[in-house]
Amino acid sequence: MLLAIDTSAGSSVAVVDYDRGVLAEASDLGTRGHAERIGRLISDALEQAGVAPAELSAVAVGMGPGPFTGLRVGIVAARTFALAAGKPVVNLVSHDAIAFAAYRDGREGPLLVVTDARRKELYWSFYDGADELGLPVRVDGPGLAKLDELPHPDAARLDAASVSAAALGLLAEHTWKNKRPFAAGEALYLRSPDVTPSAGPKRVTG
């Protein structure tokens, strides 16, 4: 049984189990205010599921891609919750949860998952299809592109405004059960901080 957290778009928290499926999901679609919401969402999801932290086997977290301020809140919450509860963390690419849910709902073949990166840019990931276990096969990305420069223009495009922690958690359960590798522990900002090293002081006199 897993607690799953994703704040790469809105804020979503779920409790899922491999055998019993989704036990609870608490989400807020707002793309701001992740820090305000995260505590209540975790608390609500656990309460609705009737699950105590000690009963969990791990915490699953979406590593993005996503706008950095909100993305970090979910990642730090997942890590700190896991640390306090003495549980491991498993990392997933957030787009994989979107693709996983799409294939599970009957989509087939190549798929370009797209989410908003703000500043007239998009995050994208490209999938070949689902494998024999129903897990999405990502063959390119995640990446960042300008609005009109998305790769794989011929593929079916799936624009998502949210990432479901329930889908993320179920994907984590299947990944775990089938001993597939999880994602790395780095937040997928896909952008460097907006700074340029200083060129030295400017003159104040003419």
Partner: peptide
Amino acid sequence: AGALMVGVGAAKAMAVALG
């Protein structure tokens, strides 16, 4: 703001995890 949010997220998660 962005720095504060990391601490707030961590503290809330820790408080909920520990009750």
